[in-house]
Amino acid sequence: MSSPLLEAHDLHKTYRLGQVDVPVLKGCSLAVSRGEWLAVLGSSGSGKSTLLHLLGGLDRPDSGRGEIRHEGQPLEGRSARAFDRYRAQTVGFVFQFYHLLPELTVLENAMLPGLVPGGIGAAPARRRVSNLLDRFGLSHRLNHRPRELSGGERQRTAIARALANDPQILLADEPTGNLDAHTGAEILDLLAEAHQSGLTIVMVTHDQQIADRADRDCRLVDGVLSVAEGTEPAPLA
């Protein structure tokens, strides 16, 4: 097996609430291989989103307590600019609440990552997301505002946005959490399709059934990741 695409070692994350420290992650480790679809299961408040934000370079672990590596290179110590690049080029986020910009159209929302520094540029992004949106059945919605869309349509737009810069890794935070079972299944079909064509996915959910769609799942309990039954522990480094 080749070295993992994304690894986390002994991650700690503590939030401060006033005077009280609230430890959320207490030594999380995981490894995601290239092309793998990993599901992280955990109850509400267990720290799933926190973990995903750390993996996506949107937040940092407690200083000196844990490390994230991408292609074997640690993220820690990189410049703010390098973090921005990492978010722009390497990962794509999908959120439970879609998080589209209300003033922009579907097309503009989806191609937005192409416009940030490090993105693939306006014209290529437009081509790419038009294609994706077409495949996602949204070609008639390109010039609509998010508020005119259903939840499923919004999430499909968000997935197109996450894929706009052709990232290596998709980080999905309960992508079906706000959808009915049928629409949720459609969204999972899209993820499966993207996974088929080689995309690495880390998806968090509290629903075992949804986690079953992934190649492998693990469980976040008490700030520590434990390997779920029936799956091999990922080799670390």
Binding site: G56, L58, A80, R81, D84, R85, Y86, R87, A88, Q89, G92, F93, H99, L100, L101, L112, P113, V116, P117, G118, G119, R161, N165
Partner: peptide
């Protein structure tokens, strides 16, 4: 605020 969070998540810098 939320838009700004979204923009940061897709790679926008502080200066951006």
């Amino acid at each position: 605020t939320r838009d700004i969070g979204i923009l940061r998540s897709i790679g926008a810098s502080r200066m951006g």
